[in-house]
Design a binder for these strands. Structure first.
Length: 691
RNA sequence: GCCCGGGUAGCCGAAUUGGUCCAGGCAGCGCGCUUAAAACGCGUGACCCCUCGGGGUGUGCGGGUUCGAAUCCCGUCCCGGGCACCA
């Protein structure tokens, strides 16, 4: 297309380009969208149903990858289809900007994480626009913005009021010479990534989120959405919940009873020991005065074993010396092992080698005696049905400077005092420049100095920040609220009621864990008050969790050197070919194995389609043109063509509704084949008539 | 180790709820067009047997349920992903 035509005045009819020039076509369309603000969230309209389509919130890594391209292409196709169906669509995006990688990048670049994040997301937004995604750019948010993280802090305080937060000791890696906590990523072979000094585990008091309070409700939500969420989404939610059905019985020992679970009710009589989590709340009571065992327990709780493998052969297992009496009179040794946590949560279970292989391994390793059943005990009650969930509470506080400060103040007289909600946000200094040494927040007097919300005396701020997983807990909500209102109203904004529950969540399969915790957050917010209208506590009626993008059977990663660069694709074949290729390549529920082959195939399809349309349609925009000229085909062929068109439209519509984008693409391609075939046959028939 | 997926032609994959396995694409091969090549178009396209009409075997492997299994069940092998202060 010539520059003159490209810049032609409105209304001027441009000649169709003879060949498909993706760059020119896309530039023209994207400029038009921008000028018309085509994807702005529409105001409420009683005649148009509202549909909120939620895509994943990417981390501000600085560059989009093919996984993003797949996810947003699926979501974008769905959002566009809903718009074309007449719905008022909310489709935007937010960035997950707090977290360790931003901090590490800032250290490497000797700049503030805030600057790095801003540069990163601005570049990613340009890439998204170049890809042609139909986001409402006005509603974009960044989790590290003050108007955003103030609400993470608000949520912390609301959870605290609701009894959903508690403090508990946990272990973290610590480097003595850098005087800082180390993430797992920063520990290499037990040494600090920065100074190569030894890393050691220390205890820290951490805030934990009590998701266990909502597990049963989450389970009900999963079952209620069978048929509404796609299969991968459902199975992922079930897997994360980790429900195990079985029975529980009470065993008795010198220091009281212990309720034990087993998923093998038929094999209770063959139990040879009791396996108990190091985190079991009643463990100290049962152990009584056994200094040696308590010391060993302490070591296990320090958690060093987690760095190694988790097989039954190597997982720690301590024979406590305590004996508990089973209903059949057998004396069962009490074994402490974290092996139970990963399967049943922090509970106690029967060890039954006859029914469970790893139980057999542990019995052999500890050389446990085979207990002899005696007469059934009189106090043995019958086993009762019971359920355990693997999902459990998790720590949400981090000893890092690039995060939302935890809104707690330390007062000499009052102790730990929550900041008042009306005093939020607790501002994170934007000009922090972490070095990897010490705690940058603790060194900032302008941040640390404050007064006690309770007594007004001088006080110090908490230096721990919220883990970015905490920011994620409510990332499904901010785009519901117009940007201009976000600094004063969020969870109880009227538009939350307009858009929630959302029509569709489209996310990578790796996001199942987030979705699980987010669903618990929705239920908590319903109970706390602002989202009371979500009666079942579920924020999305539809959910699709697509699989990842692979190459050569492996997940794409820099480490494996098998990444595909979206910028390169946009340069070479254009955004539309790239988008068509990711939709066409595999259905969402399957891994997409990337091949250049598929890209070339899609490029050819678009090129053929363009050439076909250019020959027949007057303008560069096919949908603005009149219907194709009536070919002189026989009436019965024309009828068949009409049948194909109707069938294709019905099928594609159904496919789009079910987010089966691969099928939609294939049905559209098939229709094009049919139309070409129709014309070929018509031409042949006409030649025959003339002859 | 535990949890979740997957294994269909030389390659990518259709067949999603049990109903004619392998649509479509790519590579290959043949033909057409061409001085030639590329591009393009048409055809062919699992394996074995064959009297050339067809017959048989084929969805990692072994069993099972069923009138009927890629699909459901049991076992087994292989591959991938997830279980952390990475997001």
């Amino acid at each position: 297309m010539s520059a003159a035509a490209e810049n032609g005045a409105p209304g001027e009819v441009a000649a169709p380009e003879p060949s498909y020039d993706a760059r020119a076509v896309e530039a023209r369309r994207q400029r038009d969208w921008r000028e018309r603000d085509a994807f702005a969230t529409p105001p409420p309209d009683p005649d148009r149903p509202d549909a909120y389509v939620k895509a994943v919130c990417p981390f501000t890594s600085g560059h989009i990858h093919v996984g993003h391209v797949r996810s947003y292409t699926i979501a974008d196709a769905y959002a566009r289809w809903r718009r074309m169906s007449g719905d008022a669509v909310l489709f935007s995006i937010g960035f997950d900007a707090f977290g360790l990688p931003a901090e590490l990048a800032a250290i490497a670049n000797k700049e503030s994480p805030a600057d790095w994040v801003q540069r990163s997301y601005e570049h990613m937004l340009r890439q998204f626009e170049r890809m042609g995604f139909s986001f409402d750019w006005e509603r974009v948010f960044v989790s590290s913005d003050e108007e955003q993280y103030r609400w993470s802090q608000w949520l912390f305080l609301a959870f605290l009021d609701a009894g959903l937060l508690y403090q508990e000791e946990a272990t973290v890696d610590w480097c003595d010479s850098c005087q800082t906590t180390l993430a797992s990523l920063q520990v290499e072979d037990g040494r600090c990534w920065r100074c190569n000094g030894p890393a050691r585990l220390i205890k820290r008091k951490q805030w934990f989120l009590r998701i266990s309070a909502y597990l049963e409700q989450n389970e009900r939500g999963i079952e209620d959405h069978a048929g509404k969420w796609d299969r991968p989404a459902l199975t992922a939610q079930r897997a994360i919940l980790g429900r195990v059905d079985g029975v529980e019985i009470d065993l008795h020992g010198a220091d009281g009873a212990l309720t034990c679970f087993t998923e093998h009710p038929d094999a209770i009589g063959q139990a040879r020991f009791v396996l108990v989590s190091p985190r079991h709340p009643e463990l100290e009571r049962l152990l009584g005065d056994r200094p040696g065992v308590l010391a060993e327990l302490e070591e296990v709780r320090q958690g060093g074993w987690q760095r190694g493998d988790r097989s039954a052969e190597s997982v720690p297992a301590i024979d406590s010396g305590v004996r508990l009496t089973a209903p059949n009179g057998a004396e069962l040794p009490l074994v402490i092992s974290p092996a139970v946590d990963g399967r049943y949560g922090p509970t106690a279970v029967l060890g039954i080698p006859a029914a469970d292989e790893s139980d057999g391994v542990i019995a052999r390793r500890l050389d446990l005696p085979r207990p002899e059943p005696t007469a059934p005990t009189s106090n043995g009650k019958a086993p009762r049905p019971a359920v355990r969930y693997r999902a459990g509470d998790f720590a949400i506080s981090r000893q890092r400077s690039w995060g939302a400060p935890i809104p707690i103040v330390h007062c000499d007289d009052c102790g730990e005092v929550p900041v008042r909600k009306e005093d939020l946000p607790v501002r994170l200094p934007r000009d922090l420049k972490p070095t990897g040494e010490g705690n940058p927040l603790a060194a900032r007097e302008d941040f640390m100095a404050t007064t006690c919300p309770r007594c007004g005396a001088d006080a110090r701020r908490e230096t721990d920040t919220l883990d970015c997983h905490f920011d994620d807990l409510w990332m499904w909500l901010p785009t519901c609220v117009p940007k201009a209102d976000r600094d004063r109203q969020m969870f109880d904004h009227p538009e939350c009621e307009r858009w929630l529950p959302g029509a569709m969540l489209i996310h990578g399969a790796d996001g199942g864990g987030y979705f699980f915790d987010q669903r618990i957050t929705a239920k908590a917010l319903r109970d706390i008050g602002p989202l009371a209208h979500l009666t079942d506590g579920e924020q999305f009626t539809g959910a699709v969790m697509h699989e990842m993008v692979t190459q050569d059977g492996r997940k794409m990663s820099k480490h494996l050197g098998n990444v595909v660069d979206p910028d390169d694709l946009m340069e070479r074949v254009g955004a539309d070919t790239t988008r068509l290729a990711v939709l066409h390549g595999a259905r969402p529920s399957r891994a997409l194995n990337w091949t250049e082959n598929a890209v070339q195939y899609c490029a050819k399809f678009l090129s053929d389609l363009w050439a076909y349309a250019a020959e027949r349609l007057p303008g560069p925009d096919p949908h603005e043109a009149a219907a194709a000229p009536d070919p002189d085909g026989a009436p019965q062929r024309r009828e068949r063509l009409e049948g194909w068109v109707a069938t294709a439209a019905a099928k594609v519509t159904e496919d789009l509704e079910r987010v089966e984008m691969q099928r939609a693409v294939k049905n559209a391609m098939r229709l094009f084949d049919r139309i070409e075939e129709f014309e070929t046959k018509s031409r042949r028939a006409n030649r025959g008539d003339l002859a």
